[in-house]
Amino acid sequence: MKRNIFAVFGLCAALATTPLSAGEITHEAGTTDVPDDVQRIVVLEFSFIDALASVGVAPVGIADDNKRDRVIPAYTDIIGDEWISVGTRKTPSLEVIASLAPDLIIADKTRHSAAYDTLSEIAPTIVLDSLGGDYHDSVAQMAVIGEAIGKKDEMDARITQHKATMDAYVSQLKPLSEGLSAQFGVTNATGLWLHAPVSYNGSLLEMFGFDSTMKPADGDVYEKVYVPTTLEQLSEVNPDILIFGAYANPSQVDSWKGETLFEDLTAVKSEKVFNVTAHNWSRLRGMLAAEMTAADIVEIMKQ
């Protein structure tokens, strides 16, 4: 009898010290048991900050590329600036992540799948396709994160609100974008990378009613998300509106200015070439990021 009482006490003690499971979260690398009420979250992509900020949760560690200002004020206003940098998104420091004793790690499919097992040894890890996914994928990922951090209801409410905001943008932009093609690309000192229709920004432009002229001659869509593009190739894409995000000054696109082929582009001739903040458009993805992009497009269409 006494032994049974000890056994019950033991079981209770074990239950008290073991985190309760929030359930199984299905993600790109499989299924992970995530504990309830996670408090110490490490995120390895900027879009995951967007998700946490949407429901007022601050991560303890961020792969911020060792540049804290890459986490924009729109996020720091909500999550504060107490996070520890875990290094670059491409090669985050496993040692620093482990030292933070996280109870959840949110990683990217493209960048971190190879380190999934190691990350899982540190803490329960979920893997989502931030870099390679489109806008609709990114919103779906928000719901997964909401569930994983035990804030499903708050996240669902935020997603509903976000969808209403985006619907309003769509209603505003579709009459203006009818029959127009638009293309976004990032440029640095050595090249231009167009964001294909299957990319995050490509899918956003499509949602707002813009056509894409970025199709190879055989009619297939580009499978790559970010497509290195020469001036000759750009002259074939030749959209009505060109939106560039420059990471360098002067950029590769700047070096093309004055060349006949560049000056003959439809967008250049009609003065429909626009510059946006490369960081916000290219590195950030999520709900707040999408709303900022939408606001930029509204401004572009006013010009």
Partner: peptide, 19 residues
Amino acid sequence: LDDDIARSVIRWTVGDITD
């Protein structure tokens, strides 16, 4: 290092005459 740095370096170091 950063994606854009790595892209630039790779573009320069693989032997490229696209532009």
